[in-house]
Amino acid sequence: MLDDRARMEAAKKEKVEQILAEFQLQEEDLKKVMRRMQKEMDRGLRLETHEEASVKMLPTYVRSTPEGSEVGDFLSLDLGGTNFRVMLVKVGEGEEGQWSVKTKHQMYSIPEDAMTGTAEMLFDYISECISDFLDKHQMKHKKLPLGFTFSFPVRHEDIDKGILLNWTKGFKASGAEGNNVVGLLRDAIKRRGDFEMDVVAMVNDTVATMISCYYEDHQCEVGMIVGTGCNACYMEEMQNVELVEGDEGRMCVNTEWGAFGDSGELDEFLLEYDRLVDESSANPGQQLYEKLIGGKYMGELVRLVLLRLVDENLLFHGEASEQLRTRGAFETRFVSQVESDTGDRKQIYNILSTLGLRPSTTDCDIVRRACESVSTRAAHMCSAGLAGVINRMRESRSEDVMRITVGVDGSVYKLHPSFKERFHASVRRLTPSCEITFIESEEGSGRGAALVSAVACKKACMLGQ
Rank of each mutant, 00 (worst) to 15 (best):
A188I: 00
F150G: 02
E237P: 09
V207F: 01
I110P: 05
T342S: 07
N180P: 05
E399R: 12
E319P: 14
G178H: 01
D78T: 10
T332R: 03
E48D: 06
T116I: 09
C230Q: 08
M402W: 12
P59R: 03
R192E: 05
E399Q: 13
S109K: 09
V101T: 09
H424M: 11
G80E: 03
M8G: 08
D4V: 12
E157P: 05
Q286K: 15
H218I: 14
D409M: 03
T354F: 09
V244W: 00
L314F: 05
I126K: 00
V16R: 12
M34Q: 09
R428S: 12
F419N: 06
T60F: 01
Q239I: 14
G343D: 13
A208P: 13
Y108N: 01
M115E: 07
S340N: 09
R403K: 09
I19D: 13
G44E: 00
G80I: 02
G227R: 05
E421K: 12
G294Y: 01
E279P: 00
A232T: 12
G356Y: 06
D124M: 03
K56S: 08
T60A: 09
E236V: 02
G388E: 06
G410P: 02
R325L: 09
F84V: 03
V427A: 14
E112L: 11
G81Y: 05
F23P: 04
F148I: 02
S398L: 11
R186G: 07
E256V: 02
S336T: 15
A387D: 01
S100I: 03
V338S: 12
C382W: 00
E95H: 10
A456D: 09
S64D: 14
C230H: 00
V89I: 05
P111V: 04
R250L: 15
F150H: 04
S336G: 06
F316I: 10
W257L: 10
L276R: 11
T103E: 13
K15V: 10
Y215I: 07
S212D: 15
D400R: 13
H105M: 05
W167P: 03
A188V: 08
S398R: 11
S100P: 09
H317V: 13
I163Q: 00
G80Q: 06
R5Q: 11
G249Y: 09
R422A: 13
V101P: 09
N180M: 00
K172T: 07
D135T: 08
S131L: 03
E312F: 14
A114V: 04
C220M: 04
K142E: 07
R155A: 04
D78R: 02
M8K: 14
M87R: 06
R422D: 08
Q98S: 09
R422F: 11
L276G: 15
I390A: 07
K458R: 08
F423A: 04
F269A: 12
G162Y: 01
E399H: 11
S353T: 08
T326M: 10
L301N: 11
S76F: 03
K90L: 04
M197G: 06
D267F: 14
A384Q: 08
K31H: 12
G318P: 15
E14M: 15
R333I: 13
I436G: 02
F419T: 05
A454G: 04
G227E: 05
E236W: 00
Q337D: 13
A6F: 11
D363C: 09
V253P: 01
N204E: 06
L270M: 13
I436C: 13
A449I: 01
R191A: 03
V408F: 00
D42K: 14
V101K: 06
A384R: 02
M402R: 11
M41S: 05
I348W: 07
N350Y: 10
F438S: 08
M393Y: 12
G147W: 01
G178A: 08
C457W: 08
R85E: 02
N350F: 15
V226F: 02
K12H: 09
S375F: 08
E256P: 00
L45D: 02
L185F: 04
D194F: 14
I159S: 02
F330W: 06
G81W: 02
L77S: 02
L451Y: 10
K296G: 15
L75K: 02
Q98H: 12
Q323A: 05
L45H: 02
E95R: 08
G223T: 07
E395H: 07
E300V: 03
L270G: 03
L307P: 01
R43H: 07
A370I: 07
R191C: 01
D278K: 01
F152E: 02
K140D: 04
E331F: 06
E442Q: 11
T206Q: 01
D205A: 00
H416L: 12
R333W: 02
C230M: 06
F330C: 13
I404G: 04
G261N: 05
A119F: 01
K296Q: 15
M393E: 01
V406P: 03
V101H: 08
P153L: 01
Y297V: 02
G264T: 15
L304F: 08
Y289L: 01
T342C: 14
N254S: 00
E22R: 06
C213V: 04
S453R: 02
N180S: 01
N204C: 06
T354E: 12
P432E: 08
A425S: 13
E256W: 02
R63Q: 14
F133H: 05
T326E: 07
N254H: 00
E245F: 10
F269P: 05
N231W: 00
Q347K: 08
L314C: 14
Q347G: 12
A454Y: 01
I404M: 13
D135H: 09
R5Y: 06
N231F: 01
K458Y: 15
T342F: 09
G117Y: 00
G44T: 01
R35K: 12
G81C: 05
G294I: 02
T228E: 00
E17N: 04
C233Q: 01
V62M: 11
M115Y: 14
Y273V: 13
A384M: 06
E442K: 14
T168K: 01
L75I: 14
V199R: 02
L185P: 13
K346L: 13
E248R: 07
G356A: 07
V335S: 12
E435Q: 13
T103H: 10
K90W: 13
L146T: 05
N231T: 02
A379F: 00
I189K: 03
D78I: 05
V16Y: 12
W99P: 10
G170I: 02
L75D: 05
G178V: 02
G328R: 11
R5I: 10
E245R: 12
R333C: 12
A53H: 04
R308E: 13
V200W: 05
V305P: 12
E216W: 06
D274P: 05
S340E: 13
E395G: 14
H416P: 05
E51G: 13
N231Y: 11
V33H: 00
G175R: 02
G117P: 03
A21C: 10
M37Y: 08
S127H: 03
E51Q: 12
T149K: 01
D217I: 00
Q465Y: 11
K56Y: 03
G178Y: 00
P417C: 12
